[in-house]
Design a protein around this nucleic acid. Sequence first.
RNA 1: GCCCUGGUAGCUCAGUUGGAUAGAGCAUCCGCCUCCUAAGCGGAGGGUCACAGGUUCGACUCCUGUUCAGGGCGCCA
Length: 574
Amino acid sequence: MNLKQLLDDKVTAAMTTVGIADAKAIVKQAQRSEFGHYQANGIMGAAKRQKTNPRELAAKVLEQLGDDKDLQLEIAGPGFINITLKPDFLAEALKGLQNSHRLGVDTAQSRVFVVDYSAPNLAKEMHIGHLRSTTIGDTAVRVLEFLGQKVIRANHVGDWGAQFGSLLAYMDQLASQGEELSSELKDLEKFYQSASALFRSDEAFASKARSFVVRLQGGDEKCLALWKKFIAESTRHCQAVYDQLNITLTASDIRAESAYNDVLPLVVDELEERQLLVESDGAKCVFLDGFIGKDDKPLPAIIQKSDGGYPYMATDLAAVRYRASTINAHEVLYFVGAQQQLHLRQVFAVATAAGYIGDHQRFRHLPFGWVLKADNTPFKTRDGADVKLVDVLNEAVDRAHRLVDEKNPGLSPEEKKTVARVVGIGAIKYAELSKNRTTDYIFDWDTMLSFEGNTAPYLQYAYTRIQSIFRRENISPTEIHGEFHLTDPAEFRLAVKLLQFGEAINGIIEDYQANILCNYLFDLAGIFMSFYEACPVLKATDPHRTSRLLLCHLTARTLHKGLDLLGIETVEQM
RNA sequence: GCCCUGGUAGCUCAGUUGGAUAGAGCAUCCGCCUCCUAAGCGGAGGGUCACAGGUUCGACUCCUGUUCAGGGCGCCA
């Protein structure tokens, strides 16, 4: 059940009945508590179109709605309709939530989604810049699956291209010097830096690196063997990060750039057949309307370079082709940085012109910005100035461990370890997910690893407080029987918020902004904390005690599910 | 030069197809643990929503211009 939708339908119907064409109730959650729980804003716009008095029109709509046993309605201000849910209705709705395994969230019509996210470059270690795509994409995946969609995770890792030349040449050199490769590869970042340094300083090495690129692309067996060894090591590294981060990606979700190598000539042929290809300066290009470069010159999408090589435009087109035709996806989501916006626009446009994307299929780019340091300078991907993702995660867990030592010394070492992991990792992910920005964002160590205020630990803490209530008197939450009996304002606020979980979930999938769910959960936790202070649970007498226990259990379930959708774990004590 | 983003409290950010008095967290200040976990609760201060016009009953939101910042614009990805 979706309260907002329910009310919107109801008021819209009444508006239509009183003769308003194209009626839209525009029901929203009330901005201020004195306005009730919801407000309909659509009357004023309708009155304007009809050139009538908005308050009089509102009165007509109200008359049409009549006496409602569930709702208290009133006209306010210039023509708002304020809606308050009556206590009996709230109690009944809560009962419905309590009996719903899905916390009142309906499943959507099942469609096929491909979600392209994370996509690290395997030549390097994962760094802080990968966090956003990975965490937001994973949340999108979890939410879509919760809504009953078929989701195919697509980890489009970079495992091909020129940067592998120097890596392979370096591996070859080390091997010939009798070095143990596997130990050298432990620190991928250092390995990459050493190789690049050699590439820049040693002309003989650079030329060897370039020849390795050619040999790799030509299918040279020795090169391929080295390449596979490197890719395997790098993939293991990524998986370790995913596991630590509680990301649902696995090795089977990897469909690397190289997986499309064989299809690239076919893509060129197909574009040729469609008469889209034009040769320009020796490169095979597609020129489309609406793409203008410098000096008003048409901007090409380069499909094949003059040296015969394929740029990532070709690979991305092959990926579109695969997702649209082979997987037959209805919707494909790209969680990719904002700097790729023009590129992806080109990819989608060329793919559409080529007939790869059908009318029923939707490809969307969900962009996000750079990671900046507190001094507004970007994290660069070279020179060792980057913060490695593993280091950030370990630091977060360490800080959380120091805190749990201080806050709850009574826990066993094992429990502390678990709490530190869950809280530390949760804080990192929540810091990412709770921001809506599609532009740059500041990574500040202290902000990101803060455990106070609007953070994951706050939500996790609210959860443990509830669990603590049940634990104290050995109450099994699923075996509480009785009715909801709401009297205190804090109980009403909590009740309404619990009923709005579905609205938050639906809000996410419009533009895949996880912060909508974060904001909801933070509100819910805050309202619960106030309720916790204002309304004793265990010391109350029935019917309040039972009702409050039921509210606690529903809150715990909602927090747990909401955090789970964000990929954040909970603990029983912290 | 052109295109895309963005500019909201000291800092980090919300603000849902235009709605009522622009909201949180952090930081600062004042209260609250004989009471279910103080990683908490209650309260206070803090704003020219970059700037200037326009559209209208009503603009942080839409339009135009200006400005500042970031990104992108032919063979790196």
